[in-house]
């Protein structure tokens, strides 16, 4: 096996340390009411595939089972938890708070450098909609990292609904243009996004919004400007982010978040607020998450949900001063 696939050397001091770290994080989540579940190692590819976008499906290792059925190895945990909920947990009282810690394998593991295998821990809040649920999960993610000793953790917050209406207006039914504009806005490439919009007859109002969406360091006033005269979906997304900012301020966390108005739906299943977690001690994001109100419904039982996942090795590297900074 290629050594770059290993999580750590077999007899490394990291092994017991990682176990203690996971136990500490899960204990913190347990105290907040999240019950640990066992995430299966294998899941039926056809069922998972029907619920996730191609970008997620591409990252899953798949192979044939004993009866010839195609199985996937645990990769992106959230769709598997959604599948488990729909199959086994849908009779439970709501909201349901779940936590997990699992070893995952992804064809492309963006947060763990070259590691194909890594450990991920996280939490999902199922059956809860609204601001309180969003704030609960965002806070749980930050507090979990604080609790395990990560320093200077910051939350980068966005909403997939901010750019959606702008992209819809400019691209209409042109799939290639949609993909290109989505990519340009997500890269904060104002020049390219504006050129593309102008070439396709976008209004001055849309151009103004693209300029706001692609700001490097947007402020609260920019968020308000985005909502001026905006369609319903965009106005709702802005309102939710403003409410979250207020909730963070009430906790004294004004310096612990950044707005990112250009965030895209990179996993394909997000439907509302999305976030990532950074630290000055790490070159990589420590984790992230978001609201996914339509994912569980793809398995037959509709429930709103929001969750987060943390990359254990990346966090340990940051705590140990090996995060590259």
């Amino acid at each position: 096996m290629n050594s770059t696939t290993a999580v750590s050397p077999p007899l490394s001091a990291r092994v017991p340390r990682r176990r203690r770290f996971i136990e500490m994080a899960l204990a913190g989540l347990d105290a907040a009411g999240f019950r640990e579940i066992d995430v299966p190692l294998l899941a039926p590819f056809e069922e998972i595939r029907s619920a996730v976008d191609e970008s997620v499906a591409r990252e899953l290792f798949r192979f044939a089972g004993r009866s010839g059925e195609v199985l996937v190895l645990r990769g992106d945990v959230t769709p598997v938890v959604a599948w488990q909920y729909a199959r086994h947990l849908s009779e439970r009282p709501l909201p349901l708070r779940l936590s997990y810690a699992a070893r995952v394998a992804r064809v492309r593991q963006e947060f763990a450098r070259y590691r194909i295998e890594s450990h991920e821990l996280g939490a999902e809040l199922i059956g809860a909609q609204g601001l309180d649920a969003d704030v609960e999960i965002l806070s749980a993610a930050v507090e979990t990292l604080d609790g395990v000793g990560a320093q200077g953790v910051e939350c980068v917050i966005g909403h997939v609904g901010l750019s959606a209406s702008v992209i819809d207006e400019v691209s209409k039914s042109n799939g290639t243009l949609r993909r290109q504009l989505d990519t340009a806005i997500a890269a904060k490439d104002r020049n390219e996004a504006v050129e593309m919009a102008r070439a396709n007859g976008a209004s001055a109002e849309t151009i103004r919004r693209i300029k706001l969406l692609t700001l490097v360091r947007p402020k609260r006033a920019d968020l308000a400007a985005l909502a001026e005269g905006a369609p319903r979906e965009l106005a709702d997304a802005v309102l939710r982010l403003q409410q979250i900012i207020d909730a963070f301020a009430n906790r004294g966390w004004e310096d612990r978040f950044q707005l990112d108005l250009s965030r895209r739906n990179e996993r394909g299943y997000y439907s509302g607020v999305v976030f990532s977690l950074t630290s000055p001690a790490s070159q990589r994001a420590l984790g992230g998450g978001g609201r996914y109100d339509r994912l569980i419904g793809r398995f037959g039982v509709s429930q709103p949900a929001i969750g987060f996942g943390l990359r254990v090795e990346t966090i340990l590297d940051a705590i140990d001063g090996e995060g590259g900074r």
Binding site: G152, E154, V156, V216, R217, Q258, S276, T278, S279, R284
Partner: peptide, 23 residues
């Protein structure tokens, strides 16, 4: 093709401030 100033994702607030200053 064009030449771009590019930046990594996952910048902290302080690092993002420097990027905003450069832009």
């Amino acid at each position: 093709t064009r030449v771009k100033l590019i930046a990594t994702r996952g910048l902290t607030r302080a690092q993002n401030d420097v990027l905003a200053w450069m832009v």
